[in-house]
Nucleic acid binder design. Structure first.
Lengths: 154, 154
DNA sequence: ATATTTGCAAACGTTTTGCATAGTG
DNA sequence: CACTATGCAAAACGTTTGCAAATAT
Protein backbone atom coordinates (compact mmCIF):
# COMPACT_ATOMS: atom_id res chain seq x y z
CA UNK A 1 0.00 0.00 0.00
CA UNK A 2 1.53 3.23 -1.16
CA UNK A 3 1.32 6.38 0.89
CA UNK A 4 -1.10 8.89 -0.57
CA UNK A 5 0.52 11.86 -2.29
CA UNK A 6 -0.39 15.16 -0.74
CA UNK A 7 -0.06 18.39 -2.58
CA UNK A 8 2.26 20.84 -0.88
CA UNK A 9 3.08 24.29 -2.17
CA UNK A 10 3.98 27.74 -1.06
CA UNK A 11 1.67 30.69 -1.23
CA UNK A 12 2.63 34.23 -2.13
CA UNK A 13 0.14 37.06 -2.56
CA UNK A 14 -3.19 35.34 -2.59
CA UNK A 15 -5.89 37.19 -0.79
CA UNK A 16 -9.34 36.09 -1.83
CA UNK A 17 -10.68 39.62 -1.96
CA UNK A 18 -9.78 42.79 -3.78
CA UNK A 19 -9.02 45.81 -1.65
CA UNK A 20 -12.06 47.63 -2.97
CA UNK A 21 -14.28 44.75 -1.97
CA UNK A 22 -12.81 44.93 1.51
CA UNK A 23 -13.39 48.66 1.80
CA UNK A 24 -16.93 48.20 0.56
CA UNK A 25 -17.56 45.57 3.19
CA UNK A 26 -16.26 47.88 5.90
CA UNK A 27 -18.55 50.69 4.79
CA UNK A 28 -21.50 48.33 4.51
CA UNK A 29 -21.00 47.54 8.19
CA UNK A 30 -21.10 51.22 9.08
CA UNK A 31 -17.34 51.44 9.45
CA UNK A 32 -15.12 54.08 8.00
CA UNK A 33 -12.07 53.54 5.87
CA UNK A 34 -9.65 55.48 7.99
CA UNK A 35 -5.93 55.98 7.57
CA UNK A 36 -4.92 53.40 10.16
CA UNK A 37 -7.50 50.87 9.08
CA UNK A 38 -6.59 51.21 5.44
CA UNK A 39 -2.90 50.95 6.20
CA UNK A 40 -3.35 47.76 8.23
CA UNK A 41 -5.25 46.14 5.40
CA UNK A 42 -2.68 47.22 2.85
CA UNK A 43 0.16 45.98 5.02
CA UNK A 44 -1.46 42.55 5.25
CA UNK A 45 -2.23 42.64 1.55
CA UNK A 46 1.30 43.55 0.56
CA UNK A 47 3.05 41.17 2.91
CA UNK A 48 0.81 38.32 1.83
CA UNK A 49 1.63 36.50 5.04
CA UNK A 50 0.61 36.18 8.62
CA UNK A 51 1.70 39.03 10.89
CA UNK A 52 1.61 39.59 14.62
CA UNK A 53 0.15 42.74 16.15
CA UNK A 54 3.69 43.84 16.80
CA UNK A 55 4.76 43.20 13.21
CA UNK A 56 1.87 45.31 12.03
CA UNK A 57 2.79 48.10 14.41
CA UNK A 58 6.33 48.12 13.02
CA UNK A 59 5.10 48.25 9.45
CA UNK A 60 2.78 51.11 10.35
CA UNK A 61 5.76 52.99 11.74
CA UNK A 62 7.55 52.49 8.44
CA UNK A 63 4.62 54.25 6.83
CA UNK A 64 4.96 57.07 9.38
CA UNK A 65 1.68 56.07 10.94
CA UNK A 66 1.93 55.91 14.71
CA UNK A 67 -1.39 54.97 16.20
CA UNK A 68 -1.72 54.29 19.87
CA UNK A 69 -1.36 50.63 20.76
CA UNK A 70 -4.96 50.44 21.86
CA UNK A 71 -6.10 51.94 18.59
CA UNK A 72 -4.27 49.31 16.63
CA UNK A 73 -5.56 46.47 18.79
CA UNK A 74 -9.06 47.82 18.41
CA UNK A 75 -8.63 48.01 14.67
CA UNK A 76 -7.54 44.40 14.55
CA UNK A 77 -10.52 43.35 16.63
CA UNK A 78 -12.84 45.37 14.43
CA UNK A 79 -11.46 43.89 11.23
CA UNK A 80 -11.48 40.34 12.53
CA UNK A 81 -14.98 40.78 13.87
CA UNK A 82 -16.15 41.87 10.44
CA UNK A 83 -14.39 38.99 8.71
CA UNK A 84 -12.02 41.26 6.87
CA UNK A 85 -9.03 39.59 8.47
CA UNK A 86 -8.60 36.35 10.37
CA UNK A 87 -7.08 36.03 13.81
CA UNK A 88 -4.93 33.14 14.91
CA UNK A 89 -3.37 32.65 18.33
CA UNK A 90 0.08 31.14 18.08
CA UNK A 91 2.26 30.78 21.14
CA UNK A 92 0.61 33.44 23.34
CA UNK A 93 0.33 35.99 20.57
CA UNK A 94 -2.29 36.99 18.04
CA UNK A 95 -1.48 36.77 14.36
CA UNK A 96 -3.51 38.17 11.53
CA UNK A 97 -3.91 37.63 7.82
CA UNK A 98 -6.33 38.41 5.06
CA UNK A 99 -8.73 35.61 4.16
CA UNK A 100 -7.12 33.23 1.73
CA UNK A 101 -7.26 29.68 0.49
CA UNK A 102 -7.17 27.10 3.23
CA UNK A 103 -3.64 26.71 4.55
CA UNK A 104 -1.54 26.11 7.62
CA UNK A 105 1.75 27.35 9.03
CA UNK A 106 5.31 26.30 9.65
CA UNK A 107 6.54 27.98 12.80
CA UNK A 108 10.29 28.08 13.28
CA UNK A 109 11.20 27.66 16.94
CA UNK A 110 14.62 29.10 16.16
CA UNK A 111 13.80 32.49 14.67
CA UNK A 112 10.02 32.54 15.23
CA UNK A 113 9.42 33.05 11.53
CA UNK A 114 6.13 31.76 10.21
CA UNK A 115 5.57 30.57 6.69
CA UNK A 116 2.47 29.36 4.99
CA UNK A 117 1.87 25.96 3.49
CA UNK A 118 -1.04 24.54 1.60
CA UNK A 119 -1.84 20.91 2.10
CA UNK A 120 -4.90 19.25 0.69
CA UNK A 121 -7.78 19.84 3.06
CA UNK A 122 -7.83 16.29 4.34
CA UNK A 123 -9.06 17.36 7.72
CA UNK A 124 -12.50 18.07 6.36
CA UNK A 125 -13.35 14.39 6.26
CA UNK A 126 -12.06 13.88 9.74
CA UNK A 127 -13.97 16.86 10.99
CA UNK A 128 -17.24 15.33 9.89
CA UNK A 129 -16.47 12.18 11.82
CA UNK A 130 -15.33 14.08 14.86
CA UNK A 131 -18.53 16.12 14.84
CA UNK A 132 -20.63 13.01 14.63
CA UNK A 133 -18.76 10.95 17.19
CA UNK A 134 -18.28 13.67 19.76
CA UNK A 135 -21.41 15.71 19.22
CA UNK A 136 -19.09 18.66 18.87
CA UNK A 137 -19.78 21.32 16.28
CA UNK A 138 -16.52 22.35 14.67
CA UNK A 139 -16.20 25.98 13.59
CA UNK A 140 -12.58 25.98 12.52
CA UNK A 141 -9.26 24.40 13.29
CA UNK A 142 -5.72 25.52 13.75
CA UNK A 143 -2.81 23.43 12.62
CA UNK A 144 0.77 24.54 13.05
CA UNK A 145 3.93 22.60 12.46
CA UNK A 146 6.76 23.58 14.79
CA UNK A 147 10.35 23.01 13.83
CA UNK A 148 13.45 24.52 12.30
CA UNK A 149 13.53 26.50 9.10
CA UNK A 150 16.28 26.14 6.56
CA UNK A 151 18.39 28.92 8.00
CA UNK A 152 18.07 27.81 11.61
CA UNK A 153 18.96 24.23 10.79
CA UNK A 154 22.39 25.35 9.63
CA UNK B 1 -15.00 7.29 -4.41
CA UNK B 2 -15.79 6.68 -0.77
CA UNK B 3 -14.34 8.84 1.94
CA UNK B 4 -11.68 7.04 4.00
CA UNK B 5 -12.81 5.99 7.45
CA UNK B 6 -10.79 7.56 10.20
CA UNK B 7 -10.72 6.14 13.64
CA UNK B 8 -11.97 8.54 16.28
CA UNK B 9 -12.24 7.73 19.95
CA UNK B 10 -12.04 9.31 23.34
CA UNK B 11 -9.17 8.85 25.74
CA UNK B 12 -9.43 8.51 29.49
CA UNK B 13 -6.50 7.73 31.77
CA UNK B 14 -3.74 6.86 29.42
CA UNK B 15 -0.37 8.15 30.43
CA UNK B 16 2.46 6.30 28.76
CA UNK B 17 4.54 6.16 31.93
CA UNK B 18 4.03 4.83 35.41
CA UNK B 19 4.39 7.32 38.24
CA UNK B 20 7.47 5.52 39.56
CA UNK B 21 9.13 5.79 36.19
CA UNK B 22 8.43 9.50 36.22
CA UNK B 23 9.89 9.97 39.69
CA UNK B 24 12.94 7.98 38.68
CA UNK B 25 13.44 10.19 35.68
CA UNK B 26 13.23 13.30 37.84
CA UNK B 27 15.85 11.96 40.25
CA UNK B 28 18.08 10.88 37.40
CA UNK B 29 18.11 14.50 36.28
CA UNK B 30 19.21 15.67 39.70
CA UNK B 31 15.73 16.84 40.62
CA UNK B 32 13.93 16.05 43.86
CA UNK B 33 10.50 14.60 44.22
CA UNK B 34 9.02 17.33 46.33
CA UNK B 35 5.51 17.77 47.61
CA UNK B 36 4.47 20.29 44.99
CA UNK B 37 6.16 18.49 42.14
CA UNK B 38 4.66 15.16 43.09
CA UNK B 39 1.22 16.68 43.49
CA UNK B 40 1.32 18.31 40.06
CA UNK B 41 2.23 15.02 38.44
CA UNK B 42 -0.48 13.18 40.33
CA UNK B 43 -3.04 15.80 39.42
CA UNK B 44 -2.22 15.40 35.75
CA UNK B 45 -2.18 11.64 36.14
CA UNK B 46 -5.55 11.50 37.85
CA UNK B 47 -7.29 14.00 35.62
CA UNK B 48 -6.02 12.24 32.52
CA UNK B 49 -6.56 15.38 30.54
CA UNK B 50 -4.97 18.63 29.55
CA UNK B 51 -4.94 21.31 32.25
CA UNK B 52 -4.02 24.97 32.32
CA UNK B 53 -1.62 26.38 34.88
CA UNK B 54 -4.62 27.87 36.60
CA UNK B 55 -6.49 24.55 36.65
CA UNK B 56 -3.48 22.95 38.26
CA UNK B 57 -3.27 25.68 40.86
CA UNK B 58 -6.91 25.09 41.76
CA UNK B 59 -6.40 21.36 42.08
CA UNK B 60 -3.37 21.94 44.28
CA UNK B 61 -5.53 24.08 46.55
CA UNK B 62 -8.00 21.21 46.83
CA UNK B 63 -5.11 19.13 48.14
CA UNK B 64 -4.33 21.91 50.65
CA UNK B 65 -1.11 22.68 48.81
CA UNK B 66 -0.66 26.39 48.24
CA UNK B 67 2.60 27.04 46.48
CA UNK B 68 3.48 30.50 45.32
CA UNK B 69 2.48 31.15 41.73
CA UNK B 70 6.07 31.47 40.65
CA UNK B 71 6.90 28.15 42.26
CA UNK B 72 4.20 26.41 40.34
CA UNK B 73 5.18 28.03 37.07
CA UNK B 74 8.77 27.03 37.70
CA UNK B 75 7.69 23.47 38.41
CA UNK B 76 5.81 23.30 35.16
CA UNK B 77 8.82 24.61 33.28
CA UNK B 78 11.06 22.12 35.04
CA UNK B 79 8.79 19.18 34.27
CA UNK B 80 8.26 20.16 30.66
CA UNK B 81 11.96 20.76 30.23
CA UNK B 82 12.67 17.24 31.48
CA UNK B 83 10.00 15.72 29.24
CA UNK B 84 7.89 14.61 32.15
CA UNK B 85 4.97 16.68 30.93
CA UNK B 86 4.19 18.35 27.63
CA UNK B 87 3.35 22.00 27.20
CA UNK B 88 0.86 23.29 24.67
CA UNK B 89 -0.08 26.91 24.08
CA UNK B 90 -3.78 27.28 23.35
CA UNK B 91 -5.40 30.67 23.07
CA UNK B 92 -2.69 32.64 24.90
CA UNK B 93 -2.39 30.16 27.75
CA UNK B 94 -0.19 27.22 28.55
CA UNK B 95 -1.75 23.81 28.99
CA UNK B 96 -0.01 20.71 30.28
CA UNK B 97 -0.50 16.98 30.14
CA UNK B 98 1.45 13.83 30.74
CA UNK B 99 2.93 12.20 27.66
CA UNK B 100 0.36 9.99 25.99
CA UNK B 101 -0.60 8.45 22.70
CA UNK B 102 -0.74 10.91 19.86
CA UNK B 103 -3.91 12.94 20.04
CA UNK B 104 -5.44 16.34 19.48
CA UNK B 105 -8.00 18.57 21.15
CA UNK B 106 -11.50 19.89 20.78
CA UNK B 107 -11.65 23.38 22.25
CA UNK B 108 -15.11 24.70 23.04
CA UNK B 109 -15.32 28.42 22.33
CA UNK B 110 -18.42 28.57 24.52
CA UNK B 111 -17.17 27.22 27.84
CA UNK B 112 -13.45 26.91 27.06
CA UNK B 113 -13.50 23.22 27.91
CA UNK B 114 -10.93 21.08 26.17
CA UNK B 115 -11.38 17.43 25.36
CA UNK B 116 -9.04 14.99 23.78
CA UNK B 117 -9.56 13.10 20.58
CA UNK B 118 -7.51 10.49 18.86
CA UNK B 119 -7.50 10.49 15.11
CA UNK B 120 -5.27 8.30 13.03
CA UNK B 121 -1.92 9.99 12.67
CA UNK B 122 -2.44 10.93 9.05
CA UNK B 123 -0.31 14.00 9.42
CA UNK B 124 2.84 11.94 9.59
CA UNK B 125 2.79 11.33 5.86
CA UNK B 126 2.17 14.96 5.17
CA UNK B 127 4.94 15.98 7.50
CA UNK B 128 7.48 14.01 5.48
CA UNK B 129 6.39 15.80 2.33
CA UNK B 130 6.39 19.17 4.01
CA UNK B 131 9.90 18.60 5.33
CA UNK B 132 11.16 17.64 1.91
CA UNK B 133 9.43 20.38 -0.02
CA UNK B 134 10.12 23.21 2.37
CA UNK B 135 13.48 22.16 3.79
CA UNK B 136 11.85 22.61 7.17
CA UNK B 137 12.58 20.14 9.95
CA UNK B 138 9.38 19.43 11.82
CA UNK B 139 9.68 18.76 15.54
CA UNK B 140 6.02 18.54 16.41
CA UNK B 141 2.66 19.93 15.46
CA UNK B 142 -0.36 21.26 17.23
CA UNK B 143 -3.85 20.68 15.94
CA UNK B 144 -6.90 22.00 17.71
CA UNK B 145 -10.48 22.01 16.54
CA UNK B 146 -12.46 24.97 17.77
CA UNK B 147 -16.21 24.83 18.07
CA UNK B 148 -19.13 24.18 20.37
CA UNK B 149 -19.41 21.25 22.73
CA UNK B 150 -22.63 19.36 23.28
CA UNK B 151 -23.71 21.50 26.22
CA UNK B 152 -22.91 24.82 24.60
CA UNK B 153 -24.75 23.91 21.42
CA UNK B 154 -27.99 23.70 23.35
C1' DA C 1 -25.66 66.07 14.43
C1' DT C 2 -24.54 61.79 15.14
C1' DA C 3 -21.81 57.99 15.14
C1' DT C 4 -17.28 56.32 14.71
C1' DT C 5 -12.48 56.55 15.70
C1' DT C 6 -8.61 57.95 18.49
C1' DG C 7 -5.28 58.79 22.42
C1' DC C 8 -4.28 58.30 27.02
C1' DA C 9 -3.80 56.06 31.25
C1' DA C 10 -4.75 52.41 33.69
C1' DA C 11 -5.86 47.66 34.27
C1' DC C 12 -5.95 42.90 33.00
C1' DG C 13 -4.39 37.84 33.06
C1' DT C 14 -0.61 34.97 32.40
C1' DT C 15 4.04 34.16 32.83
C1' DT C 16 8.90 35.32 34.17
C1' DT C 17 12.62 37.28 36.98
C1' DG C 18 15.97 38.39 40.98
C1' DC C 19 17.05 37.60 45.24
C1' DA C 20 17.05 35.88 49.79
C1' DT C 21 15.54 31.94 52.65
C1' DA C 22 14.38 27.17 53.48
C1' DG C 23 14.79 22.48 52.67
C1' DT C 24 16.88 18.10 51.01
C1' DG C 25 20.35 14.41 49.75
C1' DC D 1 27.96 20.77 52.62
C1' DA D 2 26.36 21.90 48.16
C1' DC D 3 22.60 22.09 45.63
C1' DT D 4 17.71 22.32 44.72
C1' DA D 5 13.30 24.26 45.68
C1' DT D 6 10.49 27.92 47.58
C1' DG D 7 8.30 32.53 48.73
C1' DC D 8 7.99 37.16 47.89
C1' DA D 9 7.82 41.27 45.31
C1' DA D 10 8.27 43.18 41.20
C1' DA D 11 8.33 43.20 36.41
C1' DA D 12 7.41 41.65 31.73
C1' DC D 13 4.34 40.72 28.09
C1' DG D 14 0.47 41.03 25.02
C1' DT D 15 -3.88 42.67 25.29
C1' DT D 16 -8.20 45.12 26.88
C1' DT D 17 -10.96 48.83 29.06
C1' DG D 18 -13.19 53.46 30.32
C1' DC D 19 -13.48 57.83 29.22
C1' DA D 20 -12.97 62.15 27.01
C1' DA D 21 -11.50 64.45 22.82
C1' DA D 22 -11.17 64.43 17.83
C1' DT D 23 -12.83 63.29 13.44
C1' DA D 24 -15.73 61.80 9.58
C1' DT D 25 -20.30 61.31 7.19
Amino acid sequence: MTAPVFEVKLLQHCCNMKLDTIYKRIRSKGGRVTKVRKAIIEILYESGCILSSFDIMLKLRELKIRPNRSTMYRELIFLAHNNVITKNAIAHKDYFELPQDHHHHLVCVGCNSIQKIVIGNHLREQEKIIERENKFQIINHSLEFYGLCRRCRA
